[in-house]
Design a binder for these strands. Structure first.
Lengths: 230, 230
DNA sequence: ATCGTAGGCTTACTGTGTAAGCTTGTCAAG
DNA sequence: CTTGACAAGCTTACACAGTAAGCCTACGAT
């Protein structure tokens, strides 16, 4: 079957050539796969299948699987809302961290990825630069900036990880809590059972409130700033 | 080669039978493997090799690989220091969370495991019960207990994860920071470069301070308690 | 008309978790 | 002493994983 370049076959190839598969399309596919079926569902073979290509073809646009992971992590970082340096630092950071939390809740796999050992990409770097800038502009010295940033980021990733990796769905928290309260030995875990009962009877769902810890931290930082200004 | 039960062969088998491999030994081996070479180095085959047995033999004592992971996670939880309910709640929790942080730094793989989707084991449950108990005894209402606990745990796991997954060794932070400060485009990342320079010149290492955020949270909680008592 | 190149495919190798079934020493009951 | 159930371990096999190496073919510039 030698060269063949007329008619249908040609068109098919032309069409295939027209969108010759780029890095962005691969990463988009990987993100939606992870969103739908979890990060562990993202394999090179399935990813290739998703974009209509054999697994090995991906390696023309991507160097590694780690490269894919770093890529989708940085795409998610790109969804973060860069904090404004015009408005009050506290409001600005609060809004930004709240938005980041919501982004990470939309992509539950991303928190562990961003906190993993991968090198930060350009989007993450830009975000870091902005947060550090806001803190510095607010009047914190460099060491406190580092500390504050560490504390805020810890809360963001720690809380989100906790929220996304509960061993049950949040919507069915009351039922799970009720079952838990029944299953635990009462004399051994009175406090846990009390908590579980509260959750079971609450009608507004699981008491996961990102802002609680966030405001605790921001309050503390504001007070620290005020006492230093003295 | 029919039944043979005298002499050396018999002793060898007896010796092998004397320590017929139990769940605890397997988990201990898994923990030290993870400590030495990382969690991804813990495979069933290597684990079997470590305890002198074929991989499939492990399944007589362990139901799954997930069972192994849950097991080692709960062993680490067993190293946590249960907070005392006798002393001041703030001191008690501070000491306890500090100790937990140190435990997790000794077992860098454990943070992500404890925060994963696995069901909590008995040791973790006991720890949770104690922390919740201390908070409740301190005078927080149940909802605030849940919130406070969530914030403290977020800090613990978020911070530890951050500290254990830096893309470089903490001891060589100054060099890495210096290299980073040089590599980043100066006009684009002035603040990050300032931070990196500070780290590069600091002689007391990387400014990772678990207590900074922890005290921020505890201060906030204490104030909340005081204002409620009014 | 030729040829380098880029996008894609095929094949193959090693390493993973684990299902299924086999072998063999131990120990209690007859 | 025999027998047979049982538990610990081993062997084999399978369906996945990531990815190295090399081939095939249409496109674009010369």
């Amino acid at each position: 079957m030698p060269t063949r370049r007329a008619g249908i076959a040609r068109d098919a190839f032309t069409a295939r050539r027209r969108a010759p598969l780029n890095r962005g399309a691969i990463l988009e596919a990987a993100i939606s796969m992870a969103d739908e079926d979890g990060l562990e569902a993202v394999t090179m073979r399935r990813l290739g299948q998703r974009v209509g290509v054999e697994a090995m073809s991906l390696y023309k646009h991507v160097s590694d699987k780690d490269d894919v992971l770093a890529g989708i992590a940085d795409r998610v970082a790109g969804e973060f809302v860069i904090p404004s340096r015009e408005t009050d630092w506290r409001d600005s950071l609060r809004a930004s961290y709240l938005a980041a939390h919501q982004v990470l809740m939309r992509h539950p796999w991303a928190a562990s990825l961003l906190e993993s050992t991968l090198q930060p990409g350009p989007a993450r770097l830009a975000y870091l630069e902005a947060v550090v800038g806001v803190l510095h502009d607010a009047g914190f010295n460099l060491l406190d900036v580092a500390h504050a940033f560490g504390a805020l980021d810890s809360h963001l990733y720690g809380f989100t990880l906790q929220a996304t990796s509960l061993p049950f769905d949040v919507s069915e928290a009351p039922e799970t809590a009720a079952a838990l309260a029944e299953a635990l030995p009462p004399e051994q875990f009175p406090n846990l059972i009390a908590m579980a009962s509260m959750v079971a009877e609450a009608d507004d769902g699981y008491p996961l409130d990102f802002t609680f810890g966030l405001d605790l931290l921001l309050d503390g930082l504001a007070r620290r700033l005020a006492s230093q200004a003295t």
